[in-house]
Amino acid sequence: MLYLIDEPMAEIGCRTAATDGDGIVVLIQDGVLLDPDLDVPTLAVERDVEMRGVTLPERIDTVTYDELIELVVDHEVTSFV
């Protein structure tokens, strides 16, 4: 499952993703300002990171919007945006 997480719904999104051992979290829009401590792969949209001028922790990788589209096509998606 692919979890898209933005700031307003971050708490419930992260709680939900934390219970999915096969999940992938993508921080999007203001979600890139978060620093979730999850045991699932966590990504952040590169353009959103650049626009907000944040530095991500090393455990969070970035994805382009094109890569995000590929992930959305390849996975079932739950949106907390």
Rank of each mutant, 00 (worst) to 15 (best):
L68W: 04
D66P: 00
R52T: 02
P36C: 11
E11H: 05
Y3G: 08
L56D: 12
E70V: 02
V40K: 02
T55E: 15
V45R: 03
V32K: 11
T55Q: 14
A18V: 04
P36Y: 15
V54N: 06
V63S: 02
P8D: 12
I24R: 11
A10G: 07
P8Q: 10
A17L: 07
I12P: 00
A17I: 05
D66G: 03
E67L: 06
A44H: 10
P36M: 14
L4E: 10
A18N: 09
I60Y: 03
L2E: 03
V77Y: 05
D61T: 08
I5Q: 06
Y65K: 15
L2V: 03
M51Y: 00
E76P: 06
D6W: 13
E7A: 09
D66E: 13
V63L: 13
V40A: 09
G53V: 06
V25L: 11
A17T: 08
G13N: 04
I24S: 04
T78A: 09
F80V: 00
C14M: 08
G53Q: 11
T78Y: 11
V49I: 12
E58M: 05
L56Y: 14
M9D: 15
V45N: 04
E70Y: 01
R52Y: 10
G13R: 09
E50P: 00
L68R: 03
V45P: 03
M51D: 15
